[in-house]
């Protein structure tokens, strides 16, 4: 716990950890929001979520290799992945949409393996990055350093979130998506083409993953086989925040990001992810206890 003393003596490092955690968490939150959307509307837990992120990263990388600034990769990856998502629904997922959860998990697991191998075939297994070259922001007399690309990513995440919120609230398709999420059968009776809604939802989720992947390749690194980490992380965030609550997902994502940074600093990197999982268990237990108490009142 010698490292705790550092934080007490020099609180500035806490600020650094806090800001890093918020910025890192936001990207995960974006991926998690896509997962929640698809889960809520189609009742499919997408195991291939992380692999779509990585695919988005490779699309952005391709754009970058063509000599375009990688930031333009964000909308391009989103557009390409939108089509990929639509294709995935039309070829595979529509067959499992009414089946039980186990079947759809298996199906998306298969897609995950397929994506990994295809990416590996096309791009190779090497670690890849794209340089945005945006420099570093210095705060508090150079004691805090934030890479500008993380800040830009944060803004992009907020913009994507806002855009989605507006889309779901205002647009015709968005309203249809929400109606289907509430009650698919009723929506069908009201004349909503739920097949179209499902394919749109899967496609939108893929587009979100694409945008996130384009950010990941600029902020971190990508490699064909590291998608699962993103799937698990976003799943965790959704479990904490619940489905269909953008604010909650953002808060949970950033909260877990901050928790991870402090755990890494104080306990060592080996506990960084383990700590977050432990936290998840605690949250679930506490929540369960609270629900049980509520049930008692109802008796």
């Amino acid at each position: 716990m010698g490292d705790l003393q550092i934080l007490i003596d020099a609180p500035i490092f806490s600020v650094q950890l806090l800001l890093d955690g918020l910025l890192i968490g936001a990207i995960f939150a974006l991926v998690a929001y896509g997962l929640a959307l698809e889960w809520g509307v189609t009742n499919i837990i997408n195991i291939a979520q992380g692999d779509l992120v990585i695919l988005g990263g490779y699309v952005a990388l391709t754009v970058y290799h063509l000599g375009v600034h990688p930031l333009f990769g964000v909308p391009i990856a989103a557009a390409v992945l939108f089509c990929v998502g639509w294709l995935i629904y039309r070829t595979v997922l529509f067959r499992v949409i009414d089946r039980d959860l186990f079947t759809s998990i298996l199906a998306t697991f298969g897609i995950s393996i397929l994506l990994q191998q295809l990416i590996d075939k096309v791009y190779g297994a090497d670690v890849q990055t794209a340089e945005a070259n945006l420099g570093t922001l210095f705060l508090f007399d150079n004691q805090i350093t934030l890479s500008n690309i993380k800040l830009v990513a944060f803004v992009v995440v907020l913009a994507c979130g806002g855009l989605l919120l507006w889309f779901l609230k205002r647009s015709r398709t968005g309203q249809a998506i929400r109606a289907t999420a509430q009650n698919a059968r009723a929506a069908r009776i009201m004349g909503i083409d739920t097949e179209h809604v499902y394919s749109m939802t899967v496609a939108i989720n893929a587009a979100i993953c694409g945008a996130a992947g384009a950010l990941v390749v600029m902020v971190w690194v990508i490699q064909p086989f590291i998608g699962l980490a993103y799937t698990i992380r976003s799943f965790m965030i959704v479990v904490v925040a619940g489905i269909g609550n953008l604010g909650g997902v953002l808060a949970a994502g950033m909260g877990l990001g901050v928790a991870e940074q402090f755990a890494g600093f104080l306990l060592g990197a080996e506990f960084q992810i383990g700590f977050v999982f432990a936290l998840l268990v605690v949250i679930l237990v506490v929540r369960n206890l609270r629900l049980a108490r509520k049930r008692e009142y109802l008796h």
């Binding site: 490092f13 890093d20 890192i24 590291i226 698990i232």
Partner: peptide
């Protein structure tokens, strides 16, 4: 510092903040 980075970890900024501190 003796950090063991988990395989899934893609960000080592917490470790690097410790490097700056120590």
């Amino acid at each position: 510092i003796d950090d063991k980075l988990p395989k899934e970890l893609n960000d080592m900024s917490a470790t690097l903040t410790k490097v700056r501190a120590l």
